[in-house]
Design a protein around this nucleic acid. Structure first.
Lengths: 217, 217, 217, 217
DNA sequence: CCTTAATCGAGACGGTACGTCGTGTCTTTAT
DNA sequence: ATAAAGACACGACGTACCGTCTCGATTAAGG
């Protein structure tokens, strides 16, 4: 009977995988799924994208590779799932402080945090395995995706609000300019190794974005 | 003394595979090095970064792994070397047509070609193995590298030329704006899967770069 | 896909590995183990100890190195296992023809056959990797092992039987004399390259062993 | 590790390699040969037969593989040469104390020492590479070689001396009995891992050899 | 004394095998 | 039906030694 004693967790570990799961039963369904995603997330953070292995995830989740593969057929898909679970999603309400600069700055701060949590290495890894635009960029979102649309819409709304205040003419602002601050910040993130500072955000807004949009009158 | 100058063959032997290399003799030095780099380049293009293997390169070059590893201790370093050999380096002279837009456009066209030849997958792969900025980005160059300086200097010269014509005030243009067209084009390249069109270049120049630099007067 | 078609054998080969094993399924456990041991045995005989390789065994068994190493972590252990499977073990009953000479001769013939099948080269190889006495010598058995005890016991019983017939006094015969015929025959085997003839056995018995034991009265 | 500590000689070792050779000059001929043999001997003793490599010998001798191979085309031949240089050869005079037992014991002691110096592992290694009888057995000599003849002749002379004293009839003693003590001692050496004691020698002489030869009258 | 041929030193080369690791599939047993 | 456990096929890893070869430096020998 002690043979059956595998695959469950010590009390201290339990909270990680499943906080209120009965201990003596074999895990399945959501419970097991959560345990795997947690293990994947931990493994990703400890080992880095390149050195994370499906084997390591299975062991850490106290299950086996087949069970992992049954749900996520590749490392990249597993990671995407883990990101969905563990990276906080930015709120999607439209900032409206009455000040265009503050609104944009708020928005840019929202995006930098999850991006930094995921890390550039993981993004490069996911992009490498052609998961391409849409799937990967769910969190920090990159370009041309439907998720992109969502963010562009928010910025557009902010610009419309500024237009109401007579600060600019939103109709004359092209999509490229709308997404410009995010593009720049994402490029910075992908290529630079240092964390993105608030000063960088402000520099982009003050010397590039605002001059461009305010010139449209 | 150039006693370490062994294995150097006549310039005619430098041709890539060994087209005019005596067949009956063991390849050495530059001849062999070229064969390996050619094999690496071919393998990279046929298989893609992720599926290219050191073993495959060795076999294709008709040599063995140890010989490859002796020169380049990792896949990424081998690829960087192959890129250096097979990707045409953009000319570094400063365009001076008398027209700012043409000058910048010329410069941007120069950089897109080698970038496209290398391919986004390879860049992501190299970035993944954190060879980071300086080494990898020799060709398409990304950010914060000494190579970056070189390109920024060229742009700055172009801007200075425009300044002489009274088109703008170069002193008021920050580094971020100077590198802006390149940053955007590289971001486009890394994230989008489609080739970068001339229209995209023009859009960036006409709607973003020129408005910004011309506003500085 | 023929990729999936691996791991089983053509009908003509089947008899070698496992005669009545289902063809379309992946081999496991004993079936696979037998295939590997057979391959090891064949490889040993074709190549000789020094030129037999784990790689060659894996290929011949139509499996892979990892599977071989999982069971036998070294070449010598694999060979020992193959010997256990393919070298006929001598019967262990005590010959009792009523004639001491015949009894001893029978016993010595029993040991020479398996010894010759294994071959001197293999024994030297195994001894070289200091698997030493006990493990290797299971078949031809050398010295100081528990297996040795078994043989000595048999000889002792034969001598006791002769004692009952009044031919000698078994108590006066030391262990060294008891094992003498086997020691000599094994020495002959290890050092000489020619097969051991029946005449050699008889010479050892008639001119050395019998005179010594019969003098003990 | 001291395994990596190759290629460096202690002052005391230097004298072995080349006692009075100018230090700053390139070695050749006998000087170099001695250095290689010394290195081979040291390497053999430190690493054991199986783990000694030509590469290691070359490094330790501060030369290169080609120079080693030019002289000895294989590891086993190099080892044989090193043994010839470093294992003391037993004296070949015939003991004649007037006591048969003492004479034989003296002879057997002579052979055990060099045998133990060489070591069983090396013998097995040499036998494995079918250098076979004659070459290998130069020192401890095994069977059927011309070197064997020499030893048998010595024993025969001892027996003849005993015959003159009326102790036995030498003509009735077969070759197998003559070589018996040596065969047994060599077998003991090859198979047992423990050093051969004087007691073992005496046991063989007193309970096996002497009874056999003295019965021939 | 100077040339010539030999051979040393240094190490690259083509090659084989090593033993390990990771992937993704498959089987078996237990729940 | 599916989790757990782990064996299996596959392929690549990076290393170690093998025995050969190339090339320049050194040195002994001969004119």
């Amino acid at each position: 009977m002690d043979k059956k004693n595998r695959g469950h967790l010590s009390p201290s570990d339990q909270s990680i995988c499943d906080e209120n799961h009965p201990t003596n039963t074999r895990r399945r369904g959501k419970t097991l799924e959560n345990a795997i995603l947690q293990a994947a997330w931990d493994e990703l953070n400890e080992m880095g994208y390149a050195h994370m292995t499906m084997e390591g995830v299975a062991v850490r989740a106290k299950t086996n590779k087949a069970t992992v593969y049954r749900r996520w057929p590749s490392k990249s898909l597993l990671i995407v799932a883990a990101l969905h679970k563990h990276v906080p999603r930015p709120t999607e309400d439209v900032p409206n402080t009455g000040d265009l600069r503050d609104d944009i700055l708020t928005l840019m701060r929202r995006i930098t945090t999850p991006m930094q949590i995921v890390g550039a290495e993981t993004i490069h890894g996911l992009l490498l395995e052609h998961l391409g635009k849409d799937i990967i960029t769910s969190f920090p979102r990159l370009r041309n995706s439907n998720i992109d649309e969502k963010w562009n819409t928010i910025i557009m709304t902010i610009l419309k609000n500024a237009e109401k205040r007579g600060e600019l003419n939103a109709d004359k602002i092209s999509t490229r300019i709308v997404s410009l601050p995010f593009d720049l910040i994402r490029y910075e993130f992908l290529v630079t190794q240092v964390p993105i500072s608030d000063e960088t955000l402000m520099e982009i807004i003050d010397t590039i974005f605002l001059p461009l949009v305010r010139s449209k009158i």
